[in-house]
Amino acid sequence: MFRSRRAPRLAAALASATLLLATAACGGSGDDSDSAAADPGSGGSSGAFPVTLDHKYGSTTIESEPKRIVTVGLTDQDSVLALGKVPVGTTEWLGGYDGAVGPWAAAKIGKAEVPTVLTDTGTGPQAEKIAALKPDLILAVYGGLTEEQYTSLSKFAPVVAQPKKYNDYGVPWQEQTQIIGEAIGAADEAAKVVKSTEDAIRTAAEENPDFKGATAVVATPYEGMFVFGSQDPRSHLLGDLGFSLPEDLDSLIGDQFGANISKERTDLLDQDAVVWQVTDVTKDPDTLHKDASYKDLNVVKQGREVFVPESSDYGNALSMGTVLSLPYVIERLVPQLAAAVDGSTDTPVEQPAS
């Protein structure tokens, strides 16, 4: 699933989001499981345990350094890999990569066994398959577990669910990495890798002063026009680069990671730059430009559109928005954004070479 076409993969994410229920908080951690180290990795510290982490459904205590980690959060594997451990199980979302690990992170697997890939079709995690992996930690930080799903998974191992203070699928990558660092005993290493990626983004912003104060938004032509809100990782990245999001973006979208907009609100796309994730960068722009409510906006007339091929490694890295994928993204996205906001209508916004 989620391998080639926009509609199935975004629909599945939306389906997962719509399953989320408003529930009262509950606490606890899962039962300990018999486990053997798949790959102990580096960065773990026995002195960091026990550790208790708060989340949407209360708190979870992890008694000792985990050896068999399963990531239910759709991008949590990147944080685990960045911190020197290899999950025994991951959840597929984008790309159909071996182990659900993109090319920006694949080298981190090293000589360890490639993780077993689980799927989430919108009905929730595959509990039986997760149990068969005998996890001693289940991570669902970048996710949308319901209370029922959290309780079910907690029977097998301690579960760290999504933070309460953000929308589901809305945790910033920095905090995602830090939470996972604490969970696996690598808090100091988490701070280091977060700083490294933040430094790369900060350097890109400093080298492109035109970004500061300019407005931008990220969208995809899914069932019309779907716009991503401020808590989506794509929007986080624009903000970190210096861009401002439309003022009324979140009031229109509500407490979701994104939403479809009506024809009457395509003005939301008329920013200094609009980043489109599209299936086909040669055909989809022409289709968008036939839309009467969109084609006459200044962002179109003045050539300030950025098109990202959604199912490419580049597009998948942008969707992931993790501590490992973002350096890969900025090498490609920043030149496109610079061309879009340079003040000249003659500058083409070209696709990256690779």
Rank of each mutant, 00 (worst) to 15 (best):
F2M: 11
S4G: 14
L14D: 13
L21R: 15
A22S: 14
D34T: 14
A36H: 13
D39L: 04
P40C: 13
G43Y: 08
G43L: 10
S46P: 14
A48Q: 13
P50T: 13
G58E: 11
T61H: 07
I62C: 05
I62M: 08
S64K: 15
E65A: 15
E65M: 14
I69Y: 00
V72K: 05
L74Y: 04
S79K: 03
V80G: 00
V80M: 02
L81S: 06
K85S: 13
L94N: 11
Y97S: 07
A100W: 03
G102D: 09
A106P: 03
G110L: 03
T123C: 02
T123V: 06
Q126M: 13
A127N: 10
A131Y: 10
V141T: 04
G143I: 06
G144Y: 08
E148Y: 11
E148H: 11
K155M: 04
A157D: 07
K164C: 05
K165N: 00
D168I: 14
Y169E: 01
Y169N: 03
G170C: 07
E175M: 10
Q176L: 08
G181K: 10
E182K: 15
A187T: 13
A187S: 15
E189L: 15
V193D: 05
V194D: 02
V194Q: 05
K195Q: 14
I201S: 02
F211E: 07
K212Y: 00
G213S: 02
T220D: 00
G224R: 08
M225H: 01
Q231I: 00
L237V: 11
D240M: 13
L245F: 09
R265C: 02
D270N: 15
D272I: 07
A273E: 03
V275N: 07
V275S: 05
W276M: 06
V278E: 00
V281Y: 08
D284A: 09
L288P: 01
L288N: 01
H289M: 09
D291R: 15
S293F: 06
Y294H: 13
L297I: 02
Q302E: 15
G303D: 11
E310V: 02
S319P: 02
M320P: 01
V323N: 06
L324P: 04
Y328A: 05
V329H: 10
V329K: 12
E331W: 03
V334M: 05
Q336D: 01
A338V: 04
V341A: 07
S344E: 00
T345M: 07
D346R: 14
T347C: 04
T347S: 12
P348G: 01
